[in-house]
Simulated scan of single mutants.
Amino acid sequence: MLTMKSTPNHTGVKISGDYFDLDELNLALYKVIGQEDQYYGYEGSRMRILGISYELRHAAQGDRNVDFVFNGLHEHTMKQHGLIAPDKNIYFSTEVLWPELLYAVTALQDFVNMYQEDKKFTLWDLHLPVILRFQSLVLDCLQGHIPVEEFEVILKAFNQLASVNDYAIQYVDLLNVKYIGMNKQQREQSLSSIALKIAIQDQDYATFRKQLINVASPHKKPIHEINIQAEYPKKIEW
């Protein structure tokens, strides 16, 4: 079963599951975000979600964290059925920064809508429920670390998400780097505001995006291809 838990320093979220959980999520992400250049204006957002897919794929291959989780097999059950078996399953996990993960939840809503438009019978689709559960798990994890009244505001914002068409994805890098630079207490206090910034695309974002457009326009480049100075530390204290 796929699970999510905030990391000890609240730097990000630890996504855990067995091989099949992570592989199922990874496949669903690939299906929903489509092929390269399939959705005009969404290539930057697609790249960010592929970054999370990359981590999930390597986690499933055992390249990240390996944990042992109780599987529900009690001693009396083994005696009853004459079994000799381990009482723990192997779970794999990886960490993703909070701003990065919250943006993925936001961007996936657009991809889900476009995916549904391309399909005839989405009610029976295998991948959409996996994506919905992924989004719900992220918000449920967030709920456990912010005040109830703040979460209600955030939930309302996530129910009325603005489109991420032609989104200035470098803004997520700025939020990531700023968030990493905080201490644990500062992260706890700022998590709500970061979630809202991503959900409602506030004035700070609008100003930043306008600056990117001014840089990109003379070169006729998409704004997601503009490089900015956002240096990530070599090691993150999760």
Results as ranks from 00 to 15, higher is better:
G82C: 07
I84E: 11
D23E: 13
R57V: 00
S16Y: 01
Y115S: 09
Y54M: 01
I131G: 04
G72H: 12
N65F: 10
W98Q: 04
L97W: 03
E43F: 00
G72T: 11
D37C: 03
P86Q: 06
L123K: 12
S93D: 05
N71P: 11
L73C: 03
D140T: 10
G12V: 12
L101H: 04
R48V: 10
W98E: 06
I90H: 02
P86N: 09
L97K: 11
T77A: 10
V112D: 01
S93W: 00
A28F: 06
D140E: 13
L139E: 11
F70N: 13
D140M: 02
K31T: 11
L50V: 15
L25F: 12
G72P: 08
M47K: 15
L128A: 02
E24V: 12
N26K: 15
K119R: 09
F70L: 10
I49A: 06
F20D: 13
F68Y: 13
R46H: 03
N65W: 07
L123Y: 07
V112Y: 04
D87P: 00
L73S: 07
T11A: 02
D87M: 05
K119L: 09
V69R: 09
D87S: 13
W124M: 13
I84K: 03
L83Q: 08
F70M: 09
F121S: 04
